[in-house]
């Protein structure tokens, strides 16, 4: 089933299939999943454990190649089946941002350094990287914790730093895997709203895998995944009273 957006596509997944093992041990983790997102669009993927959400996310994130299908990001074909058409690590560096259930901040780097390192990896000068990292942390409301190590930050603050890191290189696509699972509902909603805010303001496409049904109004589109297949598209529910994006 192909799911498309009417805006120009920032990312296109065409018939992605992932099969683990072979013969009697063959498991189809993802079956002909197609999805197209425009820049600035925020999409949620719902579904039970084992539905194939993370498989889809890692495939489109270029860290777990699909068995079949095609991935196009920013108009550039990057995967044709399991075959990489570009230098994947370099492509991730320039075009993708990741946020996970755990913030995965590097423990020996301060908050600002955790953000700046993503830019230094992308050949931004250390001075420019630090300046932009401070701007991003300010933008996400944790500028006052820039010089703290991750240990000294709360879960919500860590997740905001992780979002800042994902945004650092102004990626075409941000992939988030259960980013609010470790947060309380209030902070979880704040993070979801952050995604919408940065998508709209920075023009990045955002795919969020989540179990959190309370924040679905934040997303432009919501899809259900089950047994490796992308299911029906849901319309976003009416915004709740406290759904205003906040930094």
């Amino acid at each position: 089933m192909t799911q498309t957006s009417k805006k120009p596509a920032a990312v296109e997944a065409l018939g992605l299939t992932k099969i683990y093992g072979s013969g009697n041990t063959e498991v189809i983790a993802m079956k002909e999943v197609s999805l197209s997102l425009a820049r600035g669009e925020v999409v949620a993927l719902l579904g039970p454990s084992g539905a194939g959400k993370s498989t889809f996310l890692t495939a489109i994130g270029l860290i777990n190649p699909p068995t079949a299908g095609r991935i196009v990001i920013g108009g550039e074909a990057v995967m044709d089946g399991p075959r990489a058409l570009v230098d994947l690590r370099a492509f991730r560096r320039r075009h993708l941002g990741f946020v996970f259930q755990k913030a995965n901040l590097i423990p020996f780097l301060k908050a600002v350094e955790n953000v700046a390192i993503a830019m230094e990896i992308n050949d931004v000068s250390p001075r420019a990287a630090r300046k932009r990292a401070l701007e991003l942390l300010d933008y996400l409301g944790v500028g006052d914790r820039a010089r703290n190590l991750p240990d000294a930050l709360s879960g919500g603050q860590q997740q905001r730093v992780a979002v800042a890191r994902a945004l650092a290189n102004q990626p075409s696509l941000i992939l988030a895997d259960e980013p609010t699972a470790a947060l309380d509902s209030h902070r979880g909603r704040q993070v979801m709203e952050l995604f919408r805010q940065v998508a709209h303001e920075h023009g990045s496409a955002v795919i969020v895998v989540t179990h959190d049904h309370r924040s679905l109004d934040v997303f432009d589109r919501t899809y259900e995944m089950e047994d490796g297949e992308l299911g029906a598209k849901h319309s976003p529910p009416a915004p709740t009273a406290n759904s205003t994006p906040s930094a």
């Binding site: 560096r93 320039r94 995965n104 390192i117």
Partner: peptide, 16 residues
């Protein structure tokens, strides 16, 4: 290891 995996995910080059 986990931090190195994160650096690789962010696109860090092997020499780094």
């Amino acid at each position: 290891i986990h931090d190195i995996a994160m650096l690789k995910l962010m696109g860090a080059r092997n020499p780094m």
